[in-house]
């Protein structure tokens, strides 16, 4: 539960910072070039995933495809969705959501794979 107390502190600070209305924004402005680079990376990864799918890797095909998709998602989330600049509380939220989702998979497969 250490994560929780951390959250507690952080948001307590936030409340204090919430003075003078949060017209936040404006703190970060990313150069157009960075976005283009990210986009190029995404396109490159897409071509990799299409190419790899053509090669017969057996059971590795699925894992590679998912790994590439995960990397692409991280790129979109971190740069395009500005998680890079976001308050830590939002990062924790994302982790909690993904953690719960992962639990659902593990427990469902605890059933399926032992049937």
């Amino acid at each position: 539960m250490s994560e929780q107390s951390q959250t507690a502190e952080l948001t307590a600070n936030q409340t204090y910072n919430a003075e003078h209305t949060n017209t936040n924004n404006g703190e970060h402005s990313v150069s157009y070039g960075t976005y283009f680079m990210v986009w190029l990376g995404l396109v490159a990864l897409t071509s990799v995933t299409v190419t790899v799918a053509g090669i017969h890797l057996g059971s590795l095909t699925l894992i590679t495809a998912l790994l590439i998709a995960a990397v692409k998602t991280t790129l979109v989330g971190y740069h395009f969705m500005h998680l890079k600049f976001d308050n830590i509380i939002i990062k924790i939220f994302v982790m909690v959501c993904l953690g719960i989702f992962l639990c659902l998979w593990i427990l469902t497969f605890a059933d399926l794979s032992f049937r």
Partner: peptide, 28 residues
């Protein structure tokens, strides 16, 4: 511009879902 940012977030999510749908339905 938070509304624009929010619309962007939504659009990126739609993109992310497709990033997974594409390999799962077209490549494997």
């Amino acid at each position: 511009y938070q509304k624009l940012e929010n619309a962007g977030l939504y659009w990126h999510l739609v993109d992310i879902i497709w990033i997974f749908l594409f390999p799962l339905f077209y490549l494997l």
